[in-house]
Computed example of a mutant assay.
Amino acid sequence: MEAQTYRFAWCGIAIESIYSPLKWGAIAHLEIRSFEPPRAPLPITETGYRSHFHPPGTIETHGGDVVAQVTAWLDQEARTLRWQQYLAASRQGDLFA
């Protein structure tokens, strides 16, 4: 099955997600990267890029909407203390960075 590419925005960050339902005939693969701003941190990755392997059919079992599932993942992780601390620090700035 061919890889599917999706582009969408989350909290003002442009994101590209590439979903391969069956990679190497054995596993599903999801790539997520922020591209505007380039390499912007996301709640699921500090570098703006995440590669995620999972059992084939996982996304399809949950409705098949890649954008909705990636968005839900980002929303869930955005509620963590780690991400909330990152947001507070980025708004305040760091004199020692």
Rank of each mutant, 00 (worst) to 15 (best):
W83C: 07
D65E: 08
T58D: 08
A88T: 05
A40L: 12
Q76L: 14
I18V: 15
L22H: 03
Y19F: 10
W24C: 04
E31F: 05
F8L: 02
V67K: 07
T71C: 06
V67Q: 08
Q92L: 13
G57Y: 07
T71E: 02
Y19I: 00
T61R: 15
H54I: 01
R82V: 11
S17F: 00
E46G: 15
W73E: 08
E2P: 10
H52T: 09
R39F: 11
R50V: 11
A68D: 14
M1P: 07
Q4K: 14
G48P: 06
S34Q: 09
E46D: 15
R82C: 07
P55S: 08
G64S: 11
Y19C: 00
Y86R: 09
L74C: 11
R91Q: 15
A88H: 09
P37D: 08
A89I: 00
T47N: 01
A68H: 07
I44Y: 05
G64H: 01
T45W: 01
E16T: 03
P21H: 06
I27P: 00
I13C: 08
P43H: 10
S90C: 13
T58A: 03
E77Y: 13
K23S: 05
L42R: 02
H52F: 07
H62Q: 13
Q4I: 12
E16G: 03
A72H: 05
I44L: 12
P21G: 02
E60M: 00
T71S: 14
T5P: 02
Y6L: 05
W10C: 05
E60R: 01
Y19D: 01
Q4T: 10
H29M: 11
G57K: 07
Y49E: 12
D75S: 14
G64I: 04
P38G: 08
T71K: 11
E60L: 01
C11R: 08
L95V: 06
D75N: 11
K23M: 00
A9C: 03
